[in-house]
Design a protein around this nucleic acid. Structure first.
Length: 288
DNA sequence: ACTGGATCCTGACTGC
DNA sequence: TGCAGTCAGGATCCAG
């Protein structure tokens, strides 16, 4: 799935076309996503003016004058801004939906701006589209999320937080980083990359890592997320930005997906180990 | 309170 | 070429 940088890339693209626009129509063709698409989505959003597109962890927060909708991309979700719309006889854009095109959001032309069609595509249907009303922070999908590792509190504060919350915990560091209640929006790729940059073995018991090393880890996390956002995210297989571009960070991963290849720091082969049914990639020499 | 495993679903890839 | 098996970027729920 899209991790934090991919969601951030999507957020920016959606914000650039949607903010200030009025949504005319929402069409849901398939409600069976991770949770059923809220039945009130269509009626709440029709006529709403988009005020902002935010992001919390990996959740897109669509703020309108009538309330807030949440969009999660799951493992395979993408929003695209459809190019080259033709006008139908009725004057509305036409673009026939393909398989797995579950939701359309249509904005009619207004004040010289042309019509836009946003389309949500999600083969695995692990994504979500939910109505959160006027108090999104209390919505179950957002309540209880840990602090943002990028663009929030500084690395020292995040590092201290992780250190404090990890005392006496025996689970591997990697598991801690993937737990959104401790730190928000970190997935498998960037957990691997940050641990490598910080020189910490991802399998090390989280409770046996010093405060200083957690600070270094938080700095590495912020740095790698920064670079990945700059590159428009990581495309492993099917992630696409709303303009159809693939993310360009994939080629810059130092460990993720590189088992057997040389560590860029020391040249020893990168190892892959499966833990909790997920792959961990690390350099046994650089990471302790 | 923590922990690991199972789970939702489809598509791409691997190996026979 | 075809087919079965394996794996995947997430996050929740559950039993122990």
């Amino acid at each position: 799935m899209p991790e934090l940088p991919e969601v951030e890339t999507t957020r920016r693209a959606l914000a650039s076309v949607l903010v200030g626009r009025t949504i005319d129509r929402v069409t849901v063709r398939e409600r069976r996503l991770r949770w059923p698409v809220d039945a009130e989505i269509e009626s709440r959003l029709a006529g709403a003016v988009v005020a902002a597109i935010g992001r919390r962890a990996k959740v897109l927060v669509i703020e309108t004058d009538r309330g807030t909708a949440l969009s999660h991309l799951g493992m395979s979700g993408t929003w695209s801004v459809l190019p080259g719309l033709r006008a139908s006889p009725a004057g509305t854009p036409v673009a026939p939906p393909g398989p797995h095109d579950h939701v359309d959001i249509l904005c009619a032309p207004s004040r010289g701006a042309r019509a836009i069609l946003l389309r949500y595509h999600d083969p695995r249907r692990f994504g979500a589209l939910l109505w959160a009303g006027s108090d999104p922070d209390r919505h179950p999908r957002l309540a209880g999320l840990g602090p943002e590792p990028w663009g929030g509190a500084g690395p020292d504060a995040i590092g201290d937080h992780l250190w404090r919350r990890s005392r006496r915990r025996t689970a591997p560091l990697r598991n801690l980083l993937l737990d959104g209640r401790l730190v928000a929006g970190v997935g498998n790729i960037y957990a691997s990359e940050a641990a490598h940059r910080a020189g910490i073995h991802p399998g090390r018991a989280a409770g046996r890592i010093s405060r200083e090393r957690y600070r270094r880890l938080a700095a590495a996390l912020s740095e790698v997320l920064d670079e990945a956002v700059e590159a428009g995210g990581t495309t492993l297989r099917d992630y696409r930005a709303p303009d159809g571009d693939a993310g360009r960070f994939g080629g810059r991963c130092r460990v993720y997906g590189r088992d057997g290849a040389p560590c860029p720091a020391c040249g020893d082969p990168i190892r892959r180990r499966v833990h909790s049914a997920r792959s961990m990639y690390y350099c046994p020499r650089c990471q302790r």
